[in-house]
Computed example of a mutant assay.
Amino acid sequence: MTDIAAPNVSPRNGKPGTPPYADVWPNRKVARVAALAAKGYSAPAIAAEISDGSTPSQIAHMIWVWGIQAGSSDTRRSYADVPVPLAAKHRTALAAEAKRRGMDLSELLQKVAVTLCRDDLFGAVLDG
């Protein structure tokens, strides 16, 4: 099995005087990056997950070169679906709250998650 390489590209976008190079990644790394991207991980999250010195820019470039699609039907570049298994009683409670607020379940969950991140409420929510 051969490793996957990017087409010859220049480190300075093909400007004269810069040598072309091919970035070769082992198949295992390619598969892991592709799997994480398909799950909706961002390039910075993938770089942090694989922790091998790859930068988010390198990850993003290789995802683009390989034509990997993010794990989402959403066409906005940085958005992805995040599947979260929930018990029926929790889905029911969340759906009822969403209805009271005039939202659908996915809108409510998105607003909760965004607010949690934006206001750094992880400790308040997770630690009691």
Results as ranks from 00 to 15, higher is better:
A5R: 13
A5N: 05
A5V: 11
A6I: 10
P7V: 09
V9A: 08
P11Q: 05
P11H: 04
P11L: 08
R12Y: 08
R12S: 09
N13P: 00
G14E: 00
K15T: 06
P19A: 15
P19N: 06
P20Q: 05
Y21E: 13
D23N: 03
D23M: 11
D23E: 02
D23Q: 11
P26I: 05
P26Y: 03
N27A: 12
R28I: 11
R28N: 03
K29H: 01
K29C: 02
R32P: 00
A34Q: 10
A35L: 09
L36H: 04
A38W: 01
A38C: 04
K39H: 07
G40Y: 04
A43C: 03
P44L: 09
P44A: 08
A45H: 09
A45I: 01
A45P: 01
A45R: 07
I46F: 05
A47N: 07
A47I: 05
A48G: 04
A48H: 13
E49I: 11
I50E: 12
S51Q: 14
G53P: 04
S54M: 11
P56T: 03
P56W: 08
H61Y: 04
M62Y: 13
W64I: 12
W66Y: 10
W66P: 04
W66M: 13
A70M: 11
G71C: 11
S72I: 03
R77C: 00
S78A: 13
Y79Q: 14
Y79H: 14
A80D: 06
A80K: 09
D81H: 13
P83G: 03
P85N: 06
A87W: 02
A88C: 01
K89G: 01
K89C: 00
K89A: 04
K89F: 10
K89W: 01
R91W: 02
R91I: 08
R91A: 04
E97H: 09
A98R: 10
R101A: 14
R101W: 06
M103A: 15
D104Y: 12
S106I: 05
E107Y: 12
L108T: 12
L108I: 14
L108V: 14
Q110P: 01
A113K: 07
A113Y: 11
T115E: 03
T115V: 02
A124W: 02
A124Q: 14
D127T: 12
G128I: 03
